[in-house]
Structure formats: C-alpha cells, structure tokens
Design a protein around this nucleic acid. Sequence first.
DNA 1: ATAGCTTCTTATCATACATCAATGCACAGA
DNA 2: TCTGTGCATTGATGTATGATAAGAAGCTAT
Lengths: 197, 197
Amino acid sequence: MQSSHLKAYLTSNLDIEEKEISSIIGSCTIKKIRKDEFLLRKNEYCKHTFFVENGLLRQYSIDEKGKEHTISFAPENWFVTDRESAYFNQPSAYYIQALEDSEVVAIDENFIHQLSEKIPDFAGFNNKLLHNHIRHLQKRINLLLSASAKERYLQFIDMYPDILLRVPQTMVASYLGITPESLSRVRKELAHKHFKK
Amino acid sequence: MQSSHLKAYLTSNLDIEEKEISSIIGSCTIKKIRKDEFLLRKNEYCKHTFFVENGLLRQYSIDEKGKEHTISFAPENWFVTDRESAYFNQPSAYYIQALEDSEVVAIDENFIHQLSEKIPDFAGFNNKLLHNHIRHLQKRINLLLSASAKERYLQFIDMYPDILLRVPQTMVASYLGITPESLSRVRKELAHKHFKK
DNA sequence: ATAGCTTCTTATCATACATCAATGCACAGA
DNA sequence: TCTGTGCATTGATGTATGATAAGAAGCTAT
C-alpha cells in the first residue's frame, strides 16, 4: 500500500522503528471512495477507524424529524470513526459520508487492540488520540451551551478556516446547530460590519 | 484508607488480584470536602482523577458574561476530572465543586500512567473509561444539536432521575443550556399534561 | 447555450426561549 | 417568632432563531 500521510503521521507520533511502522501500515487496506458514498450508515456496525489520506468526509446523524446534524468533518490527516459502535460493538447512530472523492486507510478495530497490547508506545499514542477527542468534544459542548449562533460561527471560522471553504454552508449550519437561513443572516451581518469599518 | 466503593468498582471491572487492588487503593488519598468547596478552579492545573465515594460534585465553566454552564454532575461511583488539563498539562477552564458534603478518592495522574504500563488489564480498563466518556459527550452534543428544551429535559429525567432530585433547578437548567425560568415553564407544561390525562 | 440541479440569499411571519421584574415560599439564624 | 437569603414561579415583553416560500446565483451535463 502507498500511504504517505499516515506513515508520516505515525512516524512523527510514534517512537518506533520505521520498519515496524511500515509493517503496521502494510496490514491495513486503503480504500478509495467517491463523493457521496458512505463508509458507514446508521444501524451498521463500525469496524474500523479511518484515517483520511486525502479528500474530506463528514459524520452526521439524522433525527426523527429527518434533520441532519453534523458531528464532525474529517479532512486529510484526520481520523474518523464511530467509537461508540466500534468499541462497544453496537449498531451505529451515525453516517459517515464522503464530501469529496477521498482515500482513507481502514484500520481494523481488532488490529488496534493487538498493537496496543504488543507495543506500549502505541497504546500511549492511542490514549493520546482519545484524550484529544475528549478535549474536542468537551470544548464543543461548552460552546453549544454558552455561545450564540454568531459566536459559534466565528469560532468555527477560527478553528476550521480550510474546511469552511470546502463544504456547503448547509453543512456548516448543521454543525453549528442552526438553520442554513440563520447562518446566511449571520454571515450577512458580519460582512456588513467589516464593510462599515 | 477505607474505601468501599472504589474497591468494589475496581474489583468488578478489573481482573486482577484483590491484594493488588488493595495496594493500588492504598496509595491513593481520600479527601473529605464540604458543600460548596472546590476540588479545582479555573486556571489551576488538574492533577488528579477523582472517584466519588459519596456525595455529589459538579463540573462547570463560567463564560465572559458571568454565566455558569454545567459540564457534568458526579454522584457516588462516578469519576470526575478535567482530562484536558490533567492529560495535556494545561490550566483548566473549569471548576469542580461539591454540591453536598462529599468524600472523593484522589488518584494521581502519574499513578494512572504507571499502572497502565505495569498492568495491561488496567490499561484496558482506563481505555474503557475513556470510551465511555466519549460516548457520553457525543450523545450530549447530538442532543444539543437536535432537541428542544423540553426534549432535553425529558431525556435528563430519564438518564439521571436520581440527580434531578438532588440539585437545584438552576443547575439542571445550566446543564441543559437554558435559563432557570425556561426550565420552570417546561416543567409546568409537563405537569399540566400529566394532570389533564 | 440551455436546462436542471443545488446552494445561497432575502423576505415575511411564527415561535421558542431569554430578559427583566415582581412575588411567593421555604429554610436558617437571630 | 420574626427576618433575611436563596430558589422557584409567574407575567410582560423582547429578541434570536426557526419555518416557509420564493427568487438569484452557481454548477454540470447534455
């Protein structure tokens, strides 16, 4: 398998032999996936952690009223998976879909377990990923609890300026927890402010 | 140290010798803390994971406008900590305060690292805690994105019926992301519905 | 270029929730 | 028993955001 990004990622985060890393990557499969195709659908069992080599994916849920809620965006060099499903072996509540033609490395959940037990450093690395994830989620909860639509949007721009340009506003809105119309208004307001200055 | 709950908790979750568990617990300190006292304040470094033996704690933030936002409640048999601060060694953004006179076991962060490296099963246990945490946070985000005040309250009742009775409504409101007044109205509405039936 | 998507904007109206202010309780301390 | 203090409730009013609908602006494919 040809996998430059993941290899670079692991090399800079894991203090083990280049050779060993290659062997790890060797036992993963790379998957090409076209825009709009799914890596995971609701009620399926998530069996992998996906590392995005290139392209852009989105994880989202659909509620009873049929509305989409974006859980996360995953561009190059990000991991995306439903840990709840993968770890606890439950049917997933989420969809993972490609927003652009993408390539991902599918890392088997069991494989991660094995590596964690064999390589202490890898266990530590995995631990770090989990903590990062938690930090991220907590920050988002805090934001949803405390900030207005405009504030949330501003923070989004700040954190993901690159993603902003690659996804339709509808999806940004569903990430922020507002309607596309509201987002449009917020944007208008902000544009005006800049203009007047 | 006398620590019935933590010991029971570990025994039922860790497949190691009773003796070893005792020795683990032996090297932790128990802390008595009175209502309204703090285990952690904003900008302090969180150095421990706290296991609640009895009592009830709350983790919350205060935003620029001075409003409190409850991140979590922690009753008996729960862990509470700011992982972001403890793991990444950053000043915390949160407060952890006792809502009732409580007893907690303070587990040193480094100690956890050591145990994880020595005892594979403990590493697995810790991993499970992290995944549980993630599952929890994700569910909450999904709820904040998709549900109305009333729906969020109903779900809260469902998930934490015990906590509901032990904390002032102001704090429940700040957990749900609404004002105390709104919560009062939601409750009134629900009460009426039941009554009319 | 045209037709047919999808996305974004704009406008109007509706509504959930916030804000502000007053009142009512309950409980704790003198 | 009285009184102060903290919550919960209620009402009046304001505001941000949602719902709906329609038009404008890009893309894509024929």
